[in-house]
Design a protein around this nucleic acid. Structure first.
Lengths: 228, 228
DNA sequence: CGGCATCCATTTTGATACTG
DNA sequence: CAGTATCAAAATGGATGCCG
């Protein structure tokens, strides 16, 4: 499979031999929010053909980073999940994401796709453990037709696809408003006022939400200056 | 250059659009220990031809991640250095390295190359800030014919190519022994006894050295078990 | 040495058609 | 759906040769 190795006895190079090929890290990014089916992966990763997707999944399976599983009843359909080794690539991917948030985001381009799951993973990238010491809360997001939840538990965060068991707060919002929220163009209060968002549950937990994350100030790579 | 974009409004994808092509992250890894000349980069990155190296460097320059500089006198020769934006990819690369140290290292393969700089960057990956709070020390390493130093200063670490200004400790050691040292096959005391290493300087700083790093226990990706 | 240009063999990829 | 099969386009690797 990977006959094109860097041939370096170096931890970074060895890692990139395993996951440095095109699409592989994005595939793992998708799986970081929970198991996904073949078709869902293809939908999220526009441009990745079925052939290459199958090849990549086989490679990840072969290398012990992902596993083909059967979803629990009543679904009983095949899906792919990360192994513990794959899961531990989370910190590396989040580090890349943090860099991107600071140095590479700006406005969406016409041609770009977007999926709410990416922004939810962004929350994980921006989570501030110190701000959450001693706290516990579960937030459920309904963004367009996708559902996510994040569970905060004393300096740890979890952000997964699907509904939560016992959400303290439920937030329903459209993709566009959610993007402006994370882009700091809009506060949650404003979104609620204008009807762009609706919220139910524990008001105190809701008030604490914003303080749990530290969104980086975007910078211009060429001037090294805040840009916006 | 990068007409092959993922076209996703996602921080990870945007980052990989900039640095996800083959060789790019390894190029940045090389520059993380200080400016390097064209030829030195090519020596470190066996398999990367002059043409592709030139292309990649231009791309990094164009995107504001690296800069072509002229080395200070008496060298006055061209070299490449990271910009602040490029420098900030350090955490992401170190996260990939930490993963590799845990899940992908094992023994060197016959075909693999090795350069001491990679191991020195590994120290940065394994540095434990908590263990270093309040400490200050500069260590200089002479590994075969390459010189590096790392400066510890109250929970921060710097690891650069070249000699230090005022090293507290100087360690001279061969590549092979240094590898066994970082692989925990050998203690520094043993290396000194057998003549594989020689040391001069502040004995107290030397004694503290080992405690500053937490080397991950290697695991097997398939069984999720410690492997060695 | 530093770096670009060119040519060519091999891989990798992207897109689409096709099958159980 | 979940994948295989196929083929054209692009990226890479290696070998040169050139020029300041």
């Amino acid at each position: 499979m990977d006959q094109r190795t860097y041939n370096q006895y170096c931890a970074t190079a060895r890692t990139l031999d395993l996951v440095g090929e095109r699409w592989t890290l994005l595939l793992i990014r998708e799986l970081l929010t929970g198991p996904k089916r073949f078709g869902d992966l293809q939908t999220s990763l526009r441009g990745l053909g079925t052939g290459l997707l199958a090849t990549r999944l086989k490679h990840l399976e072969h290398e012990g980073l992902a596993q083909k599983i059967t979803l629990p009843p009543p679904a009983r359909t095949p899906a792919y999940a990360l192994t513990p080794a794959g899961e531990e690539l989370g910190p590396a991917i989040l580090a890349l994401a943090r860099w991107g948030l600071k140095w590479a985001m700006g406005e969406p381009r016409e041609t770009e796709t977007f999926h709410p799951g990416w922004a939810v993973l962004g929350l994980r990238a921006c989570f501030d453990p110190e701000a959450a010491t001693g706290l516990r809360a579960v937030y459920e997001f309904h963004i367009d037709d996708e559902v996510f939840h994040t569970r905060i538990d004393d300096a740890t965060i979890e952000a997964l696809h699907g509904p939560a068991q016992h959400p303290d707060v439920t937030i329903t919002i459209g993709t566009e408003a959610f993007l402006r929220l994370t882009g700091q163009d809009l506060t949650l209060a404003e979104a609620i006022e204008t009807g762009a968002a609706s919220v139910s549950g524990d008001g105190e937990a809701l008030r604490r939400l914003k303080g749990l994350f530290r969104l980086p100030l975007p910078h211009d790579r060429k001037t090294d200056r805040p840009s916006s």
